[in-house]
Design a protein around this nucleic acid. Structure first.
Lengths: 356, 356
DNA sequence: CCTCCGGATTAAAAGGTTTCAACACTCGAT
DNA sequence: ATCGAGTGTTGAAACCTTTTAATCCGGAGG
């Protein structure tokens, strides 16, 4: 039943050139060719030059797969991103690339798109491919799959989430603090009723940012009723727009004067909705986003946002992985960063504020 | 000298469980285990059940590498993106994922970040890994590397660029038409002096979009002097901001009343610069972007932009690859899409226009 | 002249899967 | 009883590298 595919049929039916061919053409054994590739210092200058010339001439492409089978692990890292279309994650990935580049390892990006099934499929493949290490921002950090993979021997670093077990390294940013500084800032600006625009509360991120918001209210002597929840199904731009329309529909007396969004995509959608609904920002509604993606500053009412050290996050995660794969005495570590608030025009009444 | 790494040391020093172990535990030969995996219809119901149970019990993870070595190619696709941080490319990638998902093949994303060296490194790795197929938006579509790879047998599809040889399939969008409709629209709005904000002219995209702009001018009986070139080094948000400051510095008499940007990142940067320089959009400066990324609509002065069928582009590219890898009678094809203009507030004087 | 030594090279085994020709067995038909 | 066809299963080769122990060789020391 399975139709035979053609795959990479090379034009003239000729086999790919392997080390055997190189060895024959150069008049040496394959072992020597291997040595030229892997331990060049072992081989004499003359033969080495000859072999290298032959490889170039024959356009030899090393078969990484065979090497991989022999030595038992590949030389590839993979990052399974939660949402490839959210600039936050591509920035994190860029940070990982910095480190991977230095270590001369390729980094493959896999996009789970917040689909648990797709994430599981990628993880299964990556394990079958015996990648050297996996970086992941998981849909659910509590999934037993993560644990199993680490236990079976593939190093796995959790990114922007806190692991449930101590079997892996992780890097994260303190989301409670993030929520707290965002809302404290809004309180400082005189706001007393604040919308919280976020995805489902079973997402750890959302829950913790909201928790921080409540803490700020408490610190100011205000009750949790001052926080108006606007829950969205997803966390994309369109969802922020929906939240905006719901917000605008509230009676003026109870309508919040400010909104804290669980990410910048939501905030941008909200901002856009405000424009088309005739709500002025920040006068009618102040808005704080989260992540400080590039487009937050580029919005024409530049967005106040909680900045996470995105690139740094990626770099650090990759460094932990590098350590885990090279240092036998490696101990798992949990690294936590602290976010900072970037104040811009979407919350600041007055002339355009200086970016801190 | 090369420090021996530890890689994925499995905890108790135990070897990974392979088909041999499964076979032994289930009391069958490895050939049968292989059949259960690859041709389940060949094996009797009873043994199949027994083998499957054993695999589950032993937590068998198939060694894709060995399979790969034997059959000569892997089951992986890769997309080498030009700029992972530009939402345009992540949207294209999302389209490819649609197709890859259906074909049950994992898609790995590689970000060349417009660095030719990095692109070459990724291509080398991918070829060594014998991926089943490569999708790429190359830094330079004329690079001989692309040709060599295809010639050596790895199918390669060019995305959003036009290949120089007929050795691969490609999908692209007509950039001349895109530039033409953008500028025609500005002319229709009464603009007579138009800035062209784009990267280096040796980028095919930029050159062709500009060419379209000139064509629109010509059709309106206007000379090429009506196009004011503002060349940027990169094509990111920051570069758009720089262009904006240069633009504002021009004497009022010769300052263009409109700008056509070669992508939306530039347009957003320009928009942002206008806000801080006190130029009103569209009254003092109308702006047209290119790509129609999600954030174009989300800008608070929503951006008029030339929409490319991003997701469709990716889907089609992946379909071509699928065909090339499965159909022996495959012929290379060049697919071209036509872009369309999406008019929004950044060019339209009047009440907020309906998005088409 | 023999031995020993060090450096350069080689031959062969190993790694885990797929594939295919060969084999074993059952059942009906001769 | 024998044969043939069909169904399931097996054993061994093949895929291409890396790695290690063994070999080869020229020269120094006895």
């Amino acid at each position: 039943m399975t139709a035979k595919g053609v795959h990479g049929t090379r034009p003239e039916g000729s086999r790919a050139v392997g080390m055997k061919d190189v060895a024959a053409a150069a008049g040496v054994s394959v072992g020597t060719v291997s040595n030229v590739l892997n331990r060049p210092d072992l081989v004499s200058h003359a033969t080495r030059a000859k072999v290298e010339a032959t490889m170039a001439e024959l356009r030899f492409v090393r078969n990484e797969t065979a090497r991989h089978l022999r030595v038992g692990h590949s030389r590839v890292w993979a990052y399974v991103m939660l949402d490839g279309r959210n600039p936050f994650f591509t920035d994190v990935a860029a940070g990982m690339e910095d480190t991977a580049d230095q270590a001369d390892l390729p980094l493959f990006l896999c996009n789970s798109a917040t689909l648990a099934a797709r994430e599981a499929a990628y993880l299964r493949r990556l394990e079958q491919q015996q990648v050297q290490g996996i970086l992941i921002t998981p849909v659910d950090p509590g999934s037993p799959l993560l644990d199993e993979i680490a236990r079976r021997g593939t190093p796995l670093v959790i990114v922007d989430r806190t692991p449930k077990t101590d079997r892996h390294c992780s890097v994260a940013v303190d989301d409670v603090v993030g929520g707290e500084i965002a809302v404290r800032h809004l309180l400082d600006q005189g706001h007393r009723r604040i919308a919280f625009v976020g995805g489902e509360l079973d997402i750890g991120q959302v829950r913790e940012r909201r928790e921080g918001a409540l803490r700020a209210l408490r610190a100011a002597g205000l009750g949790p009723d001052r926080l108006v929840d606007l829950t969205t199904s997803q966390m994309a731009v369109a969802d922020g727009g929906n939240a905006g329309r719901r917000l605008a529909g509230l009676p003026a007396a109870t309508r919040p004067s400010a909104a804290f969004c669980a990410n910048d995509l939501l905030a941008l959608g909200l901002l856009q909705a405000c424009a088309s609904l005739g709500l002025r920002v920040p006068d009618d509604l102040a808005i704080v986003g989260y992540d400080d993606i590039e487009f937050a500053a580029a919005a024409t009412v530049p967005l106040t946002s909680v900045r996470q050290p995105r690139r740094q996050l990626g770099r650090t995660a990759a460094e932990l992985l590098l350590q885990e794969t090279t240092d036998p005495a490696h101990e798992h570590r949990q690294v936590t960063f602290t976010p900072e608030l970037v104040v811009r025009a979407s919350t600041y009444r007055g002339s355009s504020p200086r970016e801190q």
